[in-house]
Design a binder for these strands. Sequence first.
DNA 1: ATACCATCTCTTTTT
DNA 2: GAGATGGTAT
Length: 795
Amino acid sequence: MSSFDDPNAMSQPSLAARAMAARPAPYLDELNPAQRAAVEALDGPVLMLAGAGTGKTKALTARIAHLMQTGRARPNEILAVTFTNKAAREMKDRVGRLMGQTVEGMPWLGTFHAICVKLLRRHAELVGLKSNFTILDTDDQIRLMKQLIIAENIDEKRWPARQLAGLIDHWKNRAWRPDQVPASEASAFNHRGSELYDYYQQRLKTLNAVDFGDLLLHMVTIFQNHPDVLEQYQRWFRYVLVDEYQDTNVAQYLWLRLLAQGHKNICCVGDDDQSIYGWRGAEVGNILRFEKDFPGAKVVRLEQNYRSTPHILAAASAVIDANQGRLGKTLWTAAEDGEKVRLIGHWDGEEEARWIGEEVESMARGTRGLRPFSLDEMAILVRASHQMRAFEDRFLTIGLPYRVIGGPRFYERMEIRDAMAYFRLAVSPDDDLAFERVVNTPKRGLGDKAQQKIQMTARSNGVSLVDGARILLQDKGLGGKGGAELRVLVDAIGRWSDLARQPEHNHIELAEQILDESGYTAHWQNDKTPEAPGRLENLKELVKALESFENLQGFLEHVALIMDNESDAGEAKVSIMTLHAAKGLEFPAVFLPGWEDGLFPSQRSMDESGLKGLEEERRLAYVGITRAEELATISFAANRRVYGQWQSALPSRFIDELPEAHVDVLTPPGLYGGGYGAAGMAASASPQIMTAAESDLQERASRADVYNSPGWKRLQARSQSRPMSQPRESRSMVIDAEAISAFTAGDRVFHTKFGYGTVMGLEGDKIDVEFDKAGGKKVVGRFLVAAAEAGDVPF
DNA sequence: ATACCATCTCTTTTT
DNA sequence: GAGATGGTAT
């Protein structure tokens, strides 16, 4: 531990820092008046209400720079918390740039969790842990809970471990320890909820482990029970800054309040209109209550938007305006008018994906008087990840490069987690969860029965599973193939841990050795499934990632908290992601598909949380629209396949909230042939058992007559002028007679359904085409169009 | 211990 | 409709 970031090694504010105060501060000149006010109000509580695209990070980093520049605090006396590693990294970079390289890193700029780990390792003994505790991820947690549920003879099918995990997580978010769970909730989970929570915490303690929620909760406990420790940090962290304050949960809130209680030098930055994580414990109330919590707080509103055009802002503002109980901000911009928000309805989800695919392509070429947009500048933001499939399918067929943001993360992949479990065993052989995970991976003939024997031996001897296995083998309690294999494994673990303890032994070599000797690499080499090569590739990447660490231990410690996967740069691609994943990002052109009642706003959200749920959905809509810089395109479909069943839906109520003056309604061919209105009618019939709040909601919805809504009327108006749909193929796919005879073997062609391909030959009235993605097909000539060029993919 | 069939459950997700 | 999980048959 360096003395630099150790509160115990406190010293006087440095002379150098004070001397710096005299120098001018160029970063202040780049701020607008509101930003500047937020930066210069250094002492006392400050709430910075920063609307979307108003230069929040700029103000926050300038504030940090200003704190140092004025000599108020040294870099290590500033506590700055974010939610994601990405945000933390960005802030570090920007502060570094503002200050020049003279500033040593800020040890206390990081995520809530990363900072809490650091603190908890110093004070672990105060909550009955050793400072080398392990951090469990969701997977480990669930396995542990499953064991508990089975041990307690609870029907695991009716009471799944997932649910218990969710419940306990919820309680931890609210900062309830097992004895603090209110009676109204404690009986959840078959009346055993709080009891199981208690057992779970005991198990964690014996395993010397914590889960993510514990990181915060343990620190709150320590601060509450040990005033001396708390005081020490209150004094050390002279200034506290919090990013995305609207996303804090109760535990985080308590933690912050405890730390800032003394000097009250706390600056919270956030936007109540962008609070979209209520479902995972975030309390908008925290930000709404700030002025009560910190009387005399200075509230600064950042309202000048530097991101979007006026039309986009107007649309977003109108939507969010329908929410109650906002702190209230009015975004404005100095930008030119630009394009209106575009609205388009489709017959079904497939048609929507097809249209967006084509629109992306033509926008990339730069049609319709719009400037050309590179694929990197376009994004498709969906409400639910299952919506992504339609787009992936479509983009694959037409050969449009895309990237999905926020898929399964690198460190959550099976092979990575297996490999990490082996590493964990090398570093600490007593890690029972790691042992359980890999004892029969690859298959060693150690099934349930053998594993139970190991468990029993370990428990009766009061030792870890590896040691239990050793004893079992010594007592000849396990013979045959399984016994022999177990011997090999146990010996190997012994060897690895010896090597891991030798600082001179290269940890990268050790990692390779572990993967090799465990048979894990061979396991995937022998696997013939199509995923196997990718998994081996990932393992290689994992080993490569070790390079930036001193040893395995250091690597493991960091990995638990840093679950990033940097999306590959390289070729320009259109991005597909959820609205949640899009928060904090911006794109010149944004597509917002699936704006249908039930999907967006999500029915489940409204069922479970009533008006609160609807308002959070509306904030999501606001987040979506405000991601767009120049062009936002909202769309909906009358019909969609949900869980294999066709369902019709009405356009989202959020569409009715879009102001007419800022919206352009586009009409695609193929929409009004199928009785759109009839399809819409069918959707409203879904009777529900409702609470009072929900029925109120329902009433509101039905009173808002969709057919008199501006959105609907606009669509009707357009449909009259172009009453009948043409067949889908009519736009670009129909080929005139001459064209058909023009196809010969070797021609590059395009088919709406199968994508690009090469003509192999002619067979009667059919043409034999070898498609790039879909394989060989015989198709009717009129569904084919000559591909633009031999080099087909236009990008 | 594994392979195969039946059944269930389907937001959003960081750390 | 599809993927994940679990139970049963081999």
